[in-house]
Write a protein that binds this DNA or RNA. Structure first.
Length: 482
RNA sequence: CGGGGUGUGGCGCAGUCCGGUAGCGCGCCUGCUUUGGGAGCAGGAGGUCCCGGGUUCGAAUCCCGGCGCCCCGACCA
């Protein structure tokens, strides 16, 4: 553990707080390779929990997992014009293999559309082969100029779904469905409220018809794009010649989609719930939901306490509660409390001689509060506390986001002032002119996060553009973003 | 790529101005005493001072040239 005892506070320096928290909680570490990170067991465990939940949701919606190669022939990337323009500058390219220069350089995948559609063109012949619903869990590489642990690393882990459909309507429905799956996951598991909606052209995925996204608001009031879902239209199908015979006997290009979330979500979890003591992990994604800390003086006490703790751990595990019994000796209970708090464990049970005598345990919540609870019925109590904490974290995050949202600024100046004062989301009318979008970004550093979906729109829709005063094409959400 | 900072035991740093052969805190190991909110004492292990040149009797320290990393911006999940 680090020598200094207190973490920098969020108010002092959010960025330093974030980096230091990750190192102290041993979620990740800097690697010998610039821009890359090592995900340590405590951080990887969170990712594994995320994967398990998402994977189940993907399968419930009919998708199958597959795996495509890390290397993509460089020429593949060039087949879709917008795509190559968007990704070529940030690819890593392998030029040598086995000591010889390769005839054609291989790109380390920044995303797998190209190689996947090359394969889809072989697999799809008929409308009977559709829809084709594929997902893969893998790593990708994007040569980013500036990196941050979990939020933007040169190599990152993610899942990318790729589907092919017979009609435009089906592709659009799939794109929307997966955006919804992401939203459900972010709300129900990460306890991170998000605003969903469509991206403007400037933030649309390279090669997509339309891009939809989930946008979270972090504690420093900066937005985090947490997941995207793209309707690719027939763009990639045309580039890779993915055609199928229709029921009527004609030939058509498939309509496809792609969607992804990454290890960035771990960063979103940290910045949504972490406090000045360290990580606060939502119970449903915690590696350990409960940690048991034994307290004793003599050898006799130690024996009895350990026996009791071990039995309790077994009981909790048997009831599906992820539990760790901290058996380390020579470390005082207080030191263990601080450590598990830094790591974000939701509940802590302290068991000592007094508790054995009274048939109880001290139950401490990561979000505050500590009391003695009877061993009888402790399972139900813990289950209930975990559920309450899960929903309380979501409600608190949602309240924080709403408090940091400004709907319908009365003037351009109010908009500017709000963003400059570290405001959060601003809902305002926009004329739709890309040049205005660019100008606002240059002057305020805020960007359009999304054109919000109906449920997020302001009931009293703005009619004029906040910047130009011209008629508003639609309401958009502005914020500074990661 | 621009601006700023920084490279010295595992980690955090002092020492650099003014050259004399490396020190502090934490961590680690051993032992004893401890254990209900970050334990104490005693003993101990561990360093090519980022790299390469140069000056000098002598360089962590001065000179020249590289490199790494972090932070802030432009690009992005």
């Amino acid at each position: 553990m680090a020598d200094t005892k207190a973490l920098p506070t969020r108010a002092q320096d959010f960025s330093a707080w974030y980096n230091e928290l990750i190192l102290r909680a041993e979620l990740a570490d800097y690697s010998p390779v610039r821009g890359c990170m090592v995900i340590r067991p405590n951080g990887y465990a969170i990712w594994e929990q995320m994967q398990a939940a998402l994977d189940r949701m993907f399968k419930e919606t009919g998708h199958q997992n597959a795996y495509f190669p890390l290397f993509i022939p460089q020429s593949f990337l060039a087949k879709e014009a917008e795509h190559v323009e968007g990704f070529a500058p940030e690819t890593a390219v392998v030029t040598h293999g086995g000591g010889k220069e390769l005839e054609e350089p291989l790109v380390v995948r920044p995303t797998s559309e190209t190689i996947i559609y090359a394969m889809f063109s072989k697999w799809i012949q008929s409308y009977r082969d559709l829809p084709l619903l594929i997902n893969q869990w893998c790593n990708v590489v994007r040569w980013e100029l500036r990196t941050r642990l979990f939020l933007r690393t040169t190599e990152f882990l993610w899942q990318e779904g790729h589907t092919a459909h017979a009609t435009e309507a089906e592709a659009e429905a799939e794109t929307r469905q997966m955006l919804g799956v992401y939203r459900t996951f972010m709300e129900d598991y990460i306890a991170m409220p998000v605003v969903t909606g469509q991206k403007t052209d400037s933030e649309r995925f390279a090669g997509a018809l339309r891009t939809y996204a989930c946008e979270g608001l972090m504690q420093d009031n900066k937005a985090l794009q947490a997941g995207t879902s793209h309707n690719l239209g027939q763009n990639f199908a045309r580039a890779f010649d993915v055609t199928f015979q229709t029921a009527e006997g004609g030939l058509d290009h498939v309509w496809s989609t792609s969607w992804g979330v990454s290890t960035r979500l771990v960063g979103g979890l940290i910045m949504t719930h972490g406090d000045d003591s360290g990580l606060v992990c939502p119970p449903r994604l915690a590696q350990y939901q409960v940690v048991i800390v034994p307290i004793y003086r003599s050898e006799e006490e130690r024996g009895a306490v350990f026996e009791s703790c071990a039995a309790l751990r077994k009981e909790l595990l048997a009831n599906g509660i992820r539990t760790h019994f901290d058996q380390r000796e020579g470390m005082k209970p207080g030191a263990k409390y601080y450590e598990w708090e830094t790591r974000g464990v939701p509940l802590r049970l302290e068991i000592g001689p007094r508790d054995l005598a009274s048939g109880s345990a001290m139950l401490a919540r990561r979000t505050g509060g500590k009391e003695s609870v009877s061993r009888t019925g402790i399972i139900a109590r813990i289950r209930s506390d975990l559920e309450k904490m899960q929903s309380a974290l979501f409600e608190a995050a949602k309240a924080r986001r709403e408090a940091a949202s400004l709907r319908g600024p009365k003037s351009k100046q109010e908009f500017i002032d709000f963003i400059a004062a570290d405001g959060g989301f601003v809902y305002a009318g926009f004329c739709g002119d890309p040049a205005v979008e660019t100008e606002i970004k240059e002057q305020t550093k805020a960007t359009i996060r999304v054109i919000p979906d109906a449920e997020f729109q302001t009931p009293d829709r703005p009619t004029t553009c906040i910047w130009t005063g011209k008629p508003a094409k639609y309401e958009v959400v502005w914020a500074k973003a990661y």
